[in-house]
Every structure is written in C-alpha cells, then in structure tokens.
C-alpha cells in the first residue's frame, strides 16, 4: 500500500469525508437563513451537492442550538411534530464571519495551488 501511486478508494473516501465535514457547519448555517426542518434541510443540502446523513445532521443542529447560533420551535405539520430551525441573530453574525474566513482560506489555497 505504501508504494502505490494512487490512494486506495477507502483512503480517498475518508479524506473526502473530512473535507466535507469542514464545510458542513457553514453550509447548514447558510441554509438556515430560511426556516426549515430537518428533512427539508437535508434535502436542500443534498440538492446542492452536499449529502449529509441523519446521524450527522441532527446532533450538529443540537450543538449549534446549544451554542446559540440557531433557534428552534416545535410545530405540528401534516399531523406530525416537526422541529423548525432558523439562524439566531448571533448565528447570522457568526455565519458572516465564517464566510469571510472561508474566502480567506480559499484565497490562500488558490495561492498555494498556483505556486505549486
């Protein structure tokens, strides 16, 4: 394995997962500029090319809410209890800061790639 010139599919998949993991928080916060519940949020992310499974999304939403970046509300819709999420004021501010950081990282990466 150490002498192969191409990374194995498992290694590549794990690295892709790590890369995606870093983007998830920004993606979730950005999507929640509009109020959504879990399923519609997951579907919107998947439609935009960022697939996230249930086991990752819901604990992440809980964590962001505990950190004060999201607010949520239980509502009955279609005879089922759904939890609707949206950005809090603190969440909006944090999202703007994260987007600036994202652009800065992007610029650095472009510079590194050009130099290489």
């Amino acid at each position: 394995m150490a002498n192969s010139t191409i990374a194995s599919p498992e290694i590549l998949e794990n690295l892709k997962l790590e890369l995606r993991r870093g983007c998830l928080i920004v993606a979730v916060l950005a999507q929640l500029r509009i109020e959504q519940y879990g399923y519609t949020l997951r579907k919107a992310l998947a439609d935009d090319g960022l697939v996230i499974d249930e086991g990752t999304l819901y604990p992440l939403l809980r964590r962001l809410e505990t950190q004060g970046l999201l607010v949520s509300q239980w509502r009955e819709e279609d005879k089922r209890n759904k939890r609707f999420y949206r950005l809090s004021p603190s969440g909006e501010q944090t999202l703007n800061q994260l987007l600036s950081e994202w652009q800065r990282i992007n610029a650095s990466l472009n510079k590194i790639l050009q130099e290489a």
Binding site: G38, R42, E54, Y58, R62, N81, R83
Partner: peptide
C-alpha cells in the same frame, strides 16, 4: 429528554423520506 427529541426528529425525517 434531548435523546427523545432527537428520536422524534429522526422519525419525522424517515417518514418524510417515505412520503417523498
């Protein structure tokens, strides 16, 4: 309580997928 709420959200997610 928190785990129960997570489970409710998961259940709603699965039922929404089935409906779709």
């Amino acid at each position: 309580q928190q785990q129960e709420e997570l489970l409710t959200e998961l259940g709603d997610d699965l039922r929404s997928q089935i409906e779709a």
